[in-house]
Every structure is written in structure tokens, then in C-alpha cells.
């Protein structure tokens, strides 16, 4: 029985068999994309728009982000909403490292993506220099609909249907990985 094999056989044996594995991987990717739980990392004004995206009007919960988990151990995606100051950057790294794999990062707003209108001694000019970012969302602040679109793009990326800026197809998220 296929399902029993999952419990009894080793992953290497399953990989050799092929077909079950790939559709299982698609199933896992579909499940992961439709239940992205964000870790709360609201910093400034974008955090208010992130809160507003959980409104009844723009309901983020229908994308699967039912709860914004405060504990990074229970979160899949980190939405960096707001300007990241240099004092806060080590905290961001620490929270990111506490998140279990697989994890994604959405850099929300102009300040997180590029320093925004603040080009000075206090603001990190691109959050990508601190954590690897998957989706950048422009706007100051981005509308809740823009954040919703970003989550939908991330869903596509997780499922393996997304393309990067050079037209190369991005790989699907791994079902499980060794080590």
C-alpha cells in the first residue's frame, strides 16, 4: 500500500519509485501555499496596512493566513512591514533564524525594499541584505490589495508556477529535505 510505505520505507527507497513522490510533493506544495501563516513583524506604517488587510473588506484569511502567529516557530512567512532600522536588524535576523524551514520573506513597502524615502544613517537600505527576500511589494504604504496580490504571487512561487525577472521558472518548494 502506497500510504503505508510512507511510514515504513526510507525516503531513498521512495525516491527510487518516482511517481508517488512527485504527486505527493505537489500535494504538499499545494497545502503549504494555501496555509501560509505569517509571523508578525510589523514595524511602522506598513504594519497598520498589514493589519488592515485582515479586515472584513480585504480578508487575508481567505488566502490561508488565518492567524498571524507571534511565535516565529509556528510561522511560515515573515512579512517585514515597515522601515528596518539598523538597531532592529539583528533582531530581524534572529527571528528569521528561529523560523523553521521552509520559510519565505515578503518585504512589504518601499522602506523595507529599498530604504524608501529614508536615505540616511539609521535605515537599512534593502532588507535583502539581512534576510533573503522572496517577494518585494512596492508602495508607501502598499494597499491591502497589493499585499494580497503579493501573497498570491508567493503562493504561485511555492507551488512552482512562478517566474523570476529573467523568465526562468522558479522551483517548487521541497516536500522534505535531508539535513
Amino acid at each position: 500500500m502506497g500510504l503505508r510505505d510512507l511510514f515504513e520505507k526510507d525516503v531513498q527507497e521512495l525516491e527510487a519509485e518516482g511517481i508517488l513522490f512527485s504527486s505527493l510533493q505537489k500535494l504538499v506544495a499545494w497545502g503549504r501555499s494555501n496555509s501560509l501563516w505569517p509571523a508578525t513583524f510589523g514595524l511602522a506604517c506598513c504594519a497598520i496596512e498589514m493589519m488592515a488587510s485582515t479586515n472584513p473588506r480585504t480578508d487575508m484569511a481567505r488566502m490561508g493566513s488565518e492567524v498571524f502567529r507571534a511565535s516565529p516557530r509556528q510561522a511560515d512567512v515573515m512579512i517585514i512591514a515597515g522601515r528596518l532600522s539598523k538597531k532592529m536588524a539583528p533582531v530581524l535576523t534572529r527571528v528569521y533564524q528561529q523560523m523553521p524551514d521552509p520559510k519565505w520573506v515578503i518585504s512589504m513597502g518601499a522602506c523595507a525594499s529599498s530604504g524608501g524615502m529614508f536615505n540616511n544613517y539609521a535605515i537599512v537600505q534593502n532588507v535583502d541584505s539581512v534576510v533573503p527576500v522572496d517577494i518585494f511589494v512596492p508602495g508607501c504604504p502598499p494597499r491591502p490589495e497589493a499585499l494580497m496580490y503579493a501573497v498570491m504571487q508567493l503562493q504561485k512561487k511555492v507551488k512552482g508556477e512562478a517566474f523570476d525577472e529573467r523568465g526562468v521558472k522558479l522551483p517548487m518548494v521541497e516536500g522534505w529535505s535531508r539535513g
Partner: peptide, 20 residues
């Protein structure tokens, strides 16, 4: 307000704004 490793006092006129 400033991080621990920032030396100097930002609002002084001889402290550069630090634009990239």
C-alpha cells in the same frame, strides 16, 4: 535611540546624514 555601535551624535552638524 541610536544603536549601541553608532558612535557620534547624529544631530550635530558635523555628523553626515549617511546617504547611500
Amino acid at each position: 535611540l541610536t544603536p549601541e555601535d553608532l558612535e557620534g551624535h547624529p544631530h550635530r552638524k558635523d555628523f553626515p546624514i549617511g546617504e547611500s
